[in-house]
């Protein structure tokens, strides 16, 4: 797979140094060269580079300023070029992939290319996974009532499925939800609230702002202070029930 590279430096020979070195790598495809930050700002959306080599000190907007204002998805793999060591901390702060000191050391350059390849391979894998996950989730997740039957989950690079009936409880983690299944936790990319809407309300119950449990897996409920309660699952796990959700739980268990 080719890696699309943009080279940004105000010194023509500095660009030659990068493009010439890149020509030794068959997967590196130089898609553009810019001599100022302004030029690069216009070029990046046009050529959508995977990897950007950028000089720090340029007339007009500096390499660092350019990166600070670029949207994250346009600037995943950035390598800074500079004669000055002291910019390293700033480069780190804008999450640069690497930082090459001028004059360029060939061995160091090769290591940088290796790092970029690994990083981009991970990005691609992630993007593929997202696509596949989307397909699986769409094709398989719901029965005709719009209720989830099983969750596609990822373990390393493998896909497996978790049957809805095996889930003990679900934990809200911001944009993600953690499926707790027999002592294991699987992450799915869906906020708890939108997930709740696709669960069978007779099978799952919300007991807390960030907790949903499988009704069948509840062992007992004990009252605690402040009209809250403590719920114990079959496997011994205890979870807090907030009073806001108490009535719904009582209703189900009646």
């Amino acid at each position: 797979m080719n890696i699309r590279v943009l080279v940004v430096d105000d010194e023509p020979l500095a660009r030659v140094g990068i493009t010439t070195r890149l020509s030794a790598y068959s997967d590196m495809l130089v898609v553009g060269e810019c001599s100022t930050g302004e030029e690069a700002r216009a070029k990046i959306p046009q050529v959508s580079p995977d990897l950007i080599f950028v000089d720090v000190e340029m007339p007009g907007i500096s390499g660092l300023d350019l990166l600070r204002e670029l949207p994250r998805e346009q600037a995943r793999c950035i390598v800074f070029l500079t004669a000055h060591e002291e910019y390293a901390v700033d480069a780190f702060n804008v999450e640069a992939l690497d930082y090459l000191l001028k004059p360029i050391d060939d061995e160091r350059f090769a290591a940088c290319i290796e790092r970029a390849r690994r990083m981009l391979a991970l990005h691609r894998q992630e993007a593929n996974f997202e696509r596949l996950y989307g397909l699986l989730a769409f094709a398989d997740k719901e029965d005709n009532r719009g209720v989830i039957k099983r969750f596609p989950v990822r373990r390393g690079n493998e896909f497996t499925f978790v049957q809805v009936g095996d889930v003990d409880w679900i934990e809200g983690l911001g944009d993600y939800a953690g499926l707790h299944v027999g002592g294991r936790t699987h992450l799915v990319r869906e906020p708890l609230t939108s997930l709740e809407a696709r669960l069978d309300p007779a099978q799952f119950v919300r007991i807390h702002r960030s907790t949903i449990v499988q009704v069948e897996h509840i062992a007992r409920i004990d009252p605690s202070a402040n009209r809250d309660a403590v719920l114990t699952l079959r496997d011994g796990k205890t979870l807090r029930v907030s009073r806001t959700y108490r009535s719904r739980l009582d209703e189900l268990l009646r």
Partner: peptide
């Protein structure tokens, strides 16, 4: 100095 050395290095690799 380092930018000049870098320019020389570019001339060598090219």
């Amino acid at each position: 100095l380092f930018n000049t050395l870098n320019a020389i290095s570019s001339l060598v690799v090219s």
